[in-house]
Write a protein that binds this DNA or RNA. Structure first.
Length: 118
DNA sequence: GTTGAGCGTT
């Protein structure tokens, strides 16, 4: 009896993380960047840990300067994990970096409207 | 010439 409850409770407590579903991703969320950093410098700093397939830094459309964070994609998760483990907490251009695994795009850009409706 | 947590199209 208790074993059944225990199994349920155990699942409820295990939902925080799952070894079968690693929170790792080949995409890395890089923040804490200096406002003077660019994709070239970021890629140059991360391409040393693996093959960078995508580098994207977010910029402010009002000031035209970087928002201080960006995304870095690797060819393999192993490279992303190594890069994060190696660069997270370190500093680039004089500012400490904060690296995390990127979530899927929220698509907050302009709405696409084909033909403007019929 | 400025500021400093965050999760996407400048």
């Amino acid at each position: 009896m208790n074993r059944n409850l225990m199994s349920v409770a155990r699942k409820a407590l295990t939902k925080v993380h799952n070894p079968n579903s690693p929170a790792t991703n080949n995409k890395l969320f890089v923040a804490g960047l200096s406002w003077s950093v660019d994709e070239r410098s970021l890629k140059d700093a991360f391409c040393s840990f693996g093959d960078v397939t995508e580098v994207r830094i977010l910029y402010d459309k009002d000031s035209g300067r970087s928002r201080g964070f960006g995304f870095v994609s690797f060819c393999k998760e192993d490279e992303a994990v190594s890069a994060k483990d190696a660069m997270d907490g370190k500093a680039l251009l004089g500012r400490p970096l904060r690296i995390s695994y990127a979530l899927e795009r929220a698509r907050g850009g302009p709405v696409v409207v084909p033909n403007g409706g019929r």
